[in-house]
């Protein structure tokens, strides 16, 4: 995928809705296209974090294995961000990510993203704001999930 195509794809993703045009271009330069087949593992729990993904199309499941049983705890789809821990230094991946369908994504090298943020704080602020929004939504969703809403209160307490 050429940079103009990446730029065009990126522009349509909700992740960049508050970015200035030049900031989107800067992000596009850092991206390359990734394709994953159905059931392919995108990353595993504990992997040294390296890549950040914006899903262009397809579905990705976040999985965790507990007591020999693998649970899907979240699915992400078109336009959603994946692998935010790559924006932090020395964080391993918290979950395993698996393509549930064929997945097309924009892939960013975490170290290069961090470097770009350091060099251009305005860009860095914009990017971190966008990641922060993603994290806030995930946290809210996770809190609701933790309430275990559909079990009777007695079974929860």
């Amino acid at each position: 995928m050429k940079i103009p195509d990446v730029l065009e794809t990126l522009r349509h993703l909700p992740f960049v809705k508050n970015f200035e045009p030049d900031q989107i271009e800067k992000l596009a330069v850092l991206a390359h296209e990734g394709r994953f087949e159905r059931d392919q593992i995108i990353f595993r729990e504990g992997d040294a974090s390296s890549f950040f993904y914006l899903i262009v199309s397809g579905k990705v499941a976040l999985e965790v294995t507990a007591l020999g049983r693998t649970l899907r705890v979240q699915t992400l789809g078109d336009g959603e961000a994946l692998g935010w821990s790559s924006l932090l230094v020395s964080e391993g991946k918290h979950f395993q990510a698996r393509a549930l369908t064929a997945v097309r994504a924009l892939v960013f090298d975490g170290a290069r993203l961090r470097e770009a943020c350091e060099q251009d704080p305005a860009f860095g602020y914009r990017l971190m704001r966008a990641v922060f929004e993603v994290l806030a939504q995930r946290l809210q969703a996770m809190r609701i999930q933790l309430l275990d809403l559909y079990s009777p209160a007695s079974a929860r307490a």
């Binding site: 976040l62 999985e63 693998t70 649970l71 899907r72 979240q74 699915t75 789809g77 969703a141 999930q145």
Partner: peptide, 23 residues
């Protein structure tokens, strides 16, 4: 449809019901 937790045989959506709105 969505579930709070799914096993490996569940290929549908996982997440609380509010996460379905985007679709």
């Amino acid at each position: 449809t969505t579930v709070d937790y799914g096993g490996l045989s569940w290929r549908g959506h996982v997440g609380v019901v509010t996460t379905l709105f985007r679709y």
